[in-house]
Design a binder for these strands. Structure first.
Lengths: 99, 99
DNA sequence: TTCGCTGTTCGTGAAATTGCGAACAAAAAT
DNA sequence: ATTTTTGTTCGCAATTTCACGAACAGCGAA
């Protein structure tokens, strides 16, 4: 079905950000990045008890949502928050939750 | 794998709330309830271009997350926010997003 | 007792998600 | 040139999600 006429653009956007946050591993990554600015994928692989392919998938989902971005520093990749998207998410959830 | 030792309780909780918010239809319902206090399932069925069984599934997901609750007023059901869970979600997302 | 209304559950199908190991690719190190 | 390191992608399996129509269940109305 097509709900595009009922649900608003900000509802779709908020839902998209929420979906990206809807997994504890991704919450962990986002919280880590909001505290320390950036991190390396390899470091996360050493910390988190999941396969590096699984971590790669989670990071991809966060990138696809726009919340983080990765900068290649061969052979590593440095991940950080995408501040533009982060600010947008802040505003959307503040408006939505009223806090 | 078991990430229960790495991801914290608040990260799991925030992820759970985020998951419930991760669909535009559920965002629509939550926003409606935050504005007008309560609504009837049947009214939503008339507004939203989705099958009533689909709406029932979405409402069930919101109930399972704790964000809403339904009160039976035969033959209808009246849905409203669960203010305790809503307040918790407000705090969790405020702490997480820093807004 | 039967009918009508409201909402849920079931079964289905398709798609998405989640996890993994293996294979691959790019770059640096040797 | 080869090896090592880092991270991605593929294929797989299992599960979940999302959508629906049909059947079911509870209640009030007739």
């Amino acid at each position: 079905m097509d709900t595009s006429e009922i649900t608003s653009d900000h509802q779709k956007k908020t839902a998209r950000y929420a979906k990206a946050m809807g997994h504890p591993i991704r919450m962990y990554v986002l919280e880590l990045l909001s505290k320390q600015n950036c991190c390396y994928s390899g470091d996360l692989t050493n910390i988190l008890p999941i396969a590096k392919s699984t971590l790669s998938q989670h990071l991809k989902e966060l990138k696809n949502s726009g919340l983080i971005q990765g900068e290649i520093e061969p052979p590593k990749i440095r991940y950080c928050l995408n501040h533009e998207a982060w600010a947008e998410a802040q505003k959307l959830f503040k408006d939505f939750l009223g806090c």
